[in-house]
């Protein structure tokens, strides 16, 4: 489920009701507490039961040399699997491929998404048609999008070569061209999501700001750079964060379009191949854990930058 929706954590309401201040555990407060867990409990259990155990299990298994077809040969190797992976050139190559895809797609999506958002923000006509149209790539199954692009670029079935006069050029024959097609498919599918988030940020900028800038003689470019962008920093950061995390976990498009051939394998694909295809459960679990750690690191990095950014902004204004 790669199309996870970002929604900032609904900040736990800090409303304090007058009656709760009086005594810490009134009858009413206790009832509220019980109801709270009664309502949130089932969802909490459903989330933890299915993800908590597998995560811990993966960490545990990653410490073993364990092949599913040879359970007797299971051997505790401590951090051996991690050492194997981190000293393997293949891992670093795939880390590079994954990072490259992430950086290329997310930056292209940001630029393209911003352009889409500007047009949608300004368009007086076709507004409904526009929103409906861009929701199609958002909602479409990633596998379907991957097939559409794989067949489009194919030199047996595709129209792309004909369109650009490329003859029989084989896009999937080389690393760079294959990665290019994967990036195109990813960008097509996820830019709409980015642009909707940016559009929401754009809609929150008061028109007066832009009017004032215009009156003061700011050019269109200056208005974008000095008024629009600084005022939608929060929206940009949220969109970047969620898209980066998603892009780093890219799996579906790779599986369908290249199946990891021509050096296009990504980290998610490596984890899948080790565990499912090669049944090297220990090694595969270690790859999964490393992937999870990397994703968490990216998230932490973003939140750090985001925080300092916001506090700086606040400082500037004073």
């Amino acid at each position: 489920m790669s199309t996870t929706i970002p929604a900032a954590p609904p900040s736990a309401p800090t409303r304090t009701r007058p009656q709760r201040r009086r005594a810490p555990v009134t009858d009413r407060a206790r009832k509220e507490r019980n109801l709270g867990w009664l309502l949130a409990g089932p969802a909490f259990i459903a989330m933890v039961a299915v993800t908590g155990y597998p995560i811990l299990n993966a960490i545990w298994l990653s410490l073993f040399d364990y092949r599913l077809t040879d359970p007797a040969g299971r051997d505790f190797v401590g951090l051996g699997n991690y050492a194997t992976i981190l000293t393997d050139g293949l891992f670093w190559k795939q880390f590079g491929v994954t990072s490259l895809i992430t950086v290329v797609t997310v930056s292209a999506e940001l630029v393209l998404g911003f352009a889409l958002a500007m047009v949608m923000h300004r368009a007086l006509y076709l507004r409904t048609a526009l929103r409906t149209a861009i929701l199609v790539p958002y909602g479409i199954i990633t596998v379907v999008s991957a097939y559409a692009w794989a067949y489009g670029f194919s030199n047996t079935y595709g129209f792309v070569n004909g369109l650009f006069g490329l003859g029989d050029y084989d896009w999937f024959g080389g690393t760079w061209s294959a990665l290019f097609t994967v990036c195109v498919a990813e960008i097509w599918k996820t830019t709409p999501f980015m642009s909707l988030l940016l559009l929401a940020g754009l809609a929150q900028i008061p028109d007066d700001y832009l009017e004032a800038a215009k009156v003061d003689g700011a050019t269109a470019w200056q208005r974008v750079k000095r008024v629009i962008l600084p005022n939608m920093k929060a929206a940009i950061m949220v969109a970047l964060l969620f898209r980066t995390l998603d892009a780093f976990r890219i799996f579906d498009s790779i599986f369908i379009m290249t199946a990891g051939a021509q050096g296009t394998e990504t980290l998610s694909f490596l984890a899948y191949r080790q565990t499912i295809s090669r049944v090297m459960v220990g090694l595969g679990s270690a790859v999964s854990v490393i992937l999870a750690i990397l994703v968490v690191l990216i998230a932490v990095m973003f939140v750090r930058v985001f925080r300092t950014d916001l506090s700086q902004q606040r400082g500037d204004r004073k």
Partner: peptide, 25 residues
């Protein structure tokens, strides 16, 4: 209710955790 932040935290952790890392275990 106590533990509200825990519920939200778990939810956020799941959205961040790679699906493939759950699928294999």
């Amino acid at each position: 209710f106590p533990g509200k932040r825990l519920v939200l935290g778990v939810a956020l952790a799941i959205t961040v955790f790679p699906v493939i890392a759950i699928a294999t275990p």
